[in-house]
């Protein structure tokens, strides 16, 4: 049973100025399921639409972004809601933070610069549950952040007084306050140095192991996925190109793009010749026809230019969209 199912989602940015209109096909026909108690990784190079996908799932669709078709269904076992049609107030009251929380990309700037950290905790708790006794509330928050290994002092600090790693931990502490079933993390370790990255990932992993919730982890860093994710989905130019359990993705990738991502990973002791792709990621305002990867694919064929490769299941939990891969191995 899936906790979140996304079906054929299309979300575009449409802008218009002085008669010139532009549509960025940032998410273009994406389907996948999230299951309880797993860490699901989303990978793909910068500006392939990962953050846009997250925006739609977390109910942050604002102009110029608009979801044009598809569905995003959240099911917590008690109720099913469509995240695309639910009213904003209902979403705020019942879903946000209680069911789905979010660790945003660039958590450096997600904390209000003029408010102490404790105030952000206060605002969130106040808005969802109300605060009867400030002292009790403060003790609860202190207990919560201590459990996550954060010192009590951070509560009285302003964001700019904390280090990047500290702020990211605060963001995770905020996201886990109500023990939500789904935690979405968008590039939670980008811009942190390696040692700090490891600490932050460890923290996320421990939380997940303890509360058995689902974590949707978005990052362009394949090494992070290798260490943390249970399953990985690879996006390219607004579409899913491959999805499989982490082991399978790294051991036997099938899509040429996935292969490229993995071969460019630095591995200890192994000296790989880094294959660089020709060209640059496509402009999503005017994406290539057929397989969107074809202008850069070393194995591209004639058919790739005209026909969109269909998603095929090669194993029960492994699917790929590439004309080279035939389905039916089931």
């Amino acid at each position: 049973m899936a906790i979140l199912s996304v079906r054929d989602l299309r979300a575009y940015y449409r802008t218009e100025a002085y008669g010139i209109s532009r549509t960025v096909h940032a998410v273009d026909g994406v389907s996948f399921d999230l299951h309880p108690d797993e860490i699901y990784g989303v990978a793909g190079e910068s500006s392939c639409g990962k953050s846009t996908l997250i925006k739609v799932i977390s109910g942050n669709v604002k102009p110029p972004l608009k979801a044009y078709s598809g569905s995003v269904e959240y099911d917590n076992g008690l109720q099913k809601v469509d995240m695309l049609t639910i009213s904003p107030e209902e979403m705020r009251r019942n879903i946000r933070w209680k069911e789905i929380s979010y660790v945003m990309q660039g958590s450096m700037s997600v904390l209000n610069p003029v408010r102490k950290i404790i105030k952000t905790f206060e605002d969130i708790v106040e808005s969802h549950r109300g605060i009867q006794d400030k002292k009790v509330f403060r003790e609860q928050v202190e207990a919560h952040i201590n459990r996550l290994g954060l010192p009590t002092d951070v509560l009285n600090a302003y964001p700019h007084q904390l280090s990047g790693g500290m702020r990211q931990r605060v963001a995770i502490a905020l996201a886990t306050m109500f023990q939500p079933r789904l935690i979405i993390a968008d590039e939670p370790t980008t811009a942190l140095d390696v040692v700090v990255q490891r600490g932050v990932l460890q923290m996320l992993k421990e939380i997940q192991a303890e509360s058995k919730n689902t974590v949707l982890l978005v990052t362009h860093d394949m090494a992070v996925h290798a260490n943390v994710a249970d399953r990985v989905m690879i996006m390219y130019a607004g579409r899913i190109v491959e999805e499989a359990p982490t082991k399978t993705i790294f051991k036997s990738p099938l899509h040429p793009y996935t292969k490229h991502l993995i071969s460019s990973l630095p591995m200890i002791g192994v000296r790989t010749t880094k294959t660089s792709l020709r060209g640059s990621p496509p402009n999503l305002a005017n994406p290539p026809s057929g397989c969107r990867f074809h202008p850069r694919c070393p194995l591209a064929m004639e058919v790739c230019r005209t026909e969109i490769p269909e998603m095929v299941d090669v194993e029960s939990r492994h699917r790929v969209a590439c004309h080279l891969v035939k389905g039916g191995a089931l």
Partner: peptide
Amino acid sequence: EYIDPRTRLRLIG
């Protein structure tokens, strides 16, 4: 507004 870089950005992408 016409010469504002943000508007320009929206125009040319």
